[in-house]
Amino acid sequence: MVPLNYYLLLSGVLFAIGIYGLISQRNGIRILMCLEILLNSANLNLVAFSSYHGNSTGQVFALFSIAIAAAEAAIGFAILIALFRVRDTIDLHNINILRW
C-alpha cells in the first residue's frame, strides 16, 4: 500500500503547480485548467485521507467536489465566452478596466 505521505506530497505538488499556473498564465483557458488542478489536488487529499481513516466520508466529499468542479468549470467557460464576445480576447492581463 502506498503510504499516505506520498499522496499528500503529490497533492501538494499539484496544488503548487495549480497556483504557479494561475499566477503565471495569461490565457483564460489555462487559468481554468489550473483551477481544476487545484481542486483535484484537494480531492486527492480527501480520497487519500478517506482510505487512511477507513471511513467513506472523504470519498463522498470528493464525489461532491468533483461534481461541483464540473459545474464550476461550466460557469467559468460561460463567463470566458461572454468575455470573448465583448472584449475579443481572453488574455486576462488585458482585462483590467476595473482597477484602483
Binding site: L35, F49, G58, E72
Partner: peptide
C-alpha cells in the same frame, strides 16, 4: 477566478482538517 482559487484553498483546508 479568485472565488475558485479560494474555494480550492478552502477545500484543501477542509481535506487537511478531515485528514
Amino acid at each position: 477566478i479568485i472565488g475558485s482559487i479560494s474555494s480550492a484553498i478552502l477545500l484543501f483546508g477542509f481535506s487537511l482538517l478531515y485528514g
